[in-house]
Design a protein around this nucleic acid. Structure first.
Lengths: 201, 201
DNA sequence: CATAATGGAGAGCGCTACTATCGAAGTCAA
DNA sequence: TTGACTTCGATAGTAGCGCTCTCCATTATG
């Protein structure tokens, strides 16, 4: 299959595919001549993953790192998540105070050194955003956030495929990123349903 | 207080404040002369909210709509969420098939017409993203997503302040948006904790 | 009165995700 | 073999976003 076939099967325009090739998101096809290459079904799949990530709001640079993790997974299953999260968590230079964040996440079963600094940093930044806007999460709500996220994570980690390392990487990396929009959208639906029930018609 | 004081109190540069004024995010100060205006504590608060929203990834246009909702809240408490969500949900022209999304969210207690089309659309789009990437949410996990989001929404809606309409608007509008980064960050921490427990050191 | 700050508005910048164009080289039906 | 079409690769250009810079007339402030 040539580039136009790849385009036809995925709906991505030829110039955009060329752009992804240049950016190193999509590997080159097999060369049949100096100016011809042919693409396989693998390329179709890869292109669909790329589009899904970009549509989910992941940047080109982060997408490149996510794909690199898929292609070159870490040895240990336990490092999988850290690597996946590192690929999609922006580097932070400003050093935030993590003590509040650490206190908060002990409710998740967290202990010092148990997770990446970047991820704790994201918690701290989110809390800082709330605080600077003068928003206080009610005391009745925060435990529900913690408990729910813990339950979700337990279910997700329990469902990590154990038969093949490849399937595990794919599940963890894509699941971390692509499920986020779904969760947020479900929360909004649930909020509207709950609001309808409380405040009635 | 003049514009430089506003800048000093918030850490936002003067040109940026001017930009927000031009964009209609920040209302003008009280005019003391044709070329002088003075800003109040209200402006400081507003500016902090603007920064928190922008830092949370909300665009200028969406921020403008969110602030408009804060300034001009809907009559009914039940319309609050819809209006808030509309402010931060991008318009969709492409018509997606919502039947899958509708079937999914009935587990949240949803019934036809119970929530905004835009929000259901977001669910459908997220599911489509997962599908096109070839990712399947395990059957053991999806119910946990639904149950957890329902619990979170129940707790959040139960905590809507009832004493003042103003407080309710603020809670709903800011809570919908600013809590999102916190939830996602907590999920990542919880995933790493759960992964550490399952796959050990 | 000199200096500095203000408000208003347009232009420019840096970044991101594309998109358009080009020429040389290759493919394929007639 | 011819001629239309496609491909590769590279360079340049585009649109939108969130600022940031510059300018100038006006207006406080020491």
């Amino acid at each position: 299959m040539r580039i136009s076939g790849l385009s036809a099967q995925t709906g991505v325009t030829v110039p955009t595919i060329k752009y992804y090739l240049r950016e190193g998101l999509l590997p080159e096809g097999e060369r049949s001549s100096p100016t011809q290459a042919s693409y396989s079904e693998k390329h179709v799949e890869r292109l669909r993953v790329i589009r899904a990530l970009l549509d989910a709001g992941v940047s080109i640079a982060e997408t490149r790192r996510v794909l690199a993790t898929l292609d070159d997974p870490p040895e240990s299953a336990n490092d999988l998540l850290g690597t996946a999260h590192a690929a999609i968590t922006p580097e932070v230079d400003e050093t935030l105070d993590l003590t509040d964040a650490e206190r908060l996440v002990t409710a998740l079963g967290w202990k010092p050194g148990m997770c990446d600094v970047a991820v704790l940093n994201a918690v701290a930044r989110a809390m800082q955003g709330l605080e600077s806007a003068g928003f206080v999460v009610p005391e009745s709500v925060m435990p529900e956030y913690l408990a729910s996220m813990r339950r979700i994570a337990d279910a997700e980690i329990a469902a990590v495929p154990s038969e093949s390392a490849e399937a595990a990487v794919r599940y963890v990396v894509l699941g971390s990123v692509l499920v986020e929009p779904l969760l947020l959208a479900l929360r909004r639906v649930a909020q509207q349903v709950a609001s309808g029930e409380r405040f009635g018609e």
